[in-house]
């Protein structure tokens, strides 16, 4: 018993060390006043200041947030309704076909999803005689595309677990189908919708590969900006950016963990 405990600590400890050591290096050197990644000169916020004065970085951040918000909203609404429809499909064949197609963007390598969309956009754009085939909208379509399976996969189980008698009772008591959906079914599936939405939002902020192939010339997201930064010699400005991203994700994860716990409490309250 004791031996396996020690082993467990060693294994988990080494794994976490491996995962976090490189990130810790970036965070440490983001506070270095010099450019070197070997000598730590002085503690300073110089690179943070540098970052906040960088207009391109701020524009990229704004673009990323706009894109993530819009694509999350559209994919969450479309995906939630899709999960509702799929959970109520009678034909097994149709349901499994829809699910297989839904899973394609998740199973395919990002590079192929990106290339395939780009080929279609370029083809259609050339056919329509557009000066530029790729734009904010092509990227938006791409982001909705890879978000949808994650929304559906987190909402669908909630529909399947739900007591089917509840919406029926609502209908019996005089609700219209729409009312029953918004008053009975939506509150039940809400945790799944939120999980899926949060996932879609983070994935949209994080995506590089698919965005790289479907980007228009005037619209740069944060990952695309990071890519262009790492093409040249990198200044610690990038480390400052990485540090900020790290703490934002940490906060998001903490929030989602806390809401999970609240969820459990609510359930307990209901049962009492």
């Amino acid at each position: 018993m004791k031996k396996s405990r020690v082993l467990s600590r060693i294994v988990i400890g080494l794994t976490l060390l491996f995962l976090f050591a490189p990130i810790a290096v970036l965070i440490a050197y983001s506070f270095n006043s010099g450019k070197s990644t070997v000598v730590f000169q002085d503690f300073s916020f110089r690179w943070y200041q540098n970052l906040f004065e960088d207009k391109a970085a701020l524009a990229a951040l704004r673009n990323s947030v706009v894109l993530a918000v819009v694509s999350t909203l559209i994919s969450t609404v479309m995906g939630t309704f899709a999960a509702y429809g799929i959970s109520r499909m009678r034909s097994r064949f149709f349901r499994s076909t829809v699910m297989s197609v839904t899973n394609i963007p998740m199973m395919n390598p990002d590079i192929i999803t990106g290339i395939s969309l780009m080929l279609m956009f370029v083809f259609v754009g050339t056919m329509l005689g557009l000066a530029e085939s790729l734009s904010f909208y092509t990227m938006l379509i791409a982001h909705i595309n890879f978000s949808l399976p994650y929304i559906i996969l987190s909402v669908l189980p909630k529909f399947n677990q739900m007591d089917k008698a509840m919406p029926e009772a609502a209908l019996d008591l005089g609700c219209t189908p729409m009312q029953s959906f918004f008053k009975v079914e939506l509150p039940e599936i809400m945790p799944g919708v939120l999980t899926g939405g949060l996932m879609a939002f983070t994935m949209s902020l994080d995506d590089f590969v698919i965005s790289y192939f479907t980007k228009g010339s005037g619209f740069q997201t944060l990952p695309l900006y990071i890519y262009s930064m790492t093409k040249k010699t990198v200044t610690p400005k990038m480390y400052a950016l990485a540090t900020i991203i790290f703490f934002v994700i940490l906060t998001l994860l903490l929030i989602s963990n806390l809401t999970d716990q609240d969820d459990g409490k609510n359930h307990k309250a209901k049962n009492n």
Partner: peptide
């Protein structure tokens, strides 16, 4: 949560960290 944290960090940054 700790395992998922680097997963959500952009892989461009994570790759670059190793270059450093």
């Amino acid at each position: 949560m700790l395992i998922m944290l680097p997963m959500w960090m952009n892989f461009l940054i994570r790759t670059y960290a190793w270059m450093v």
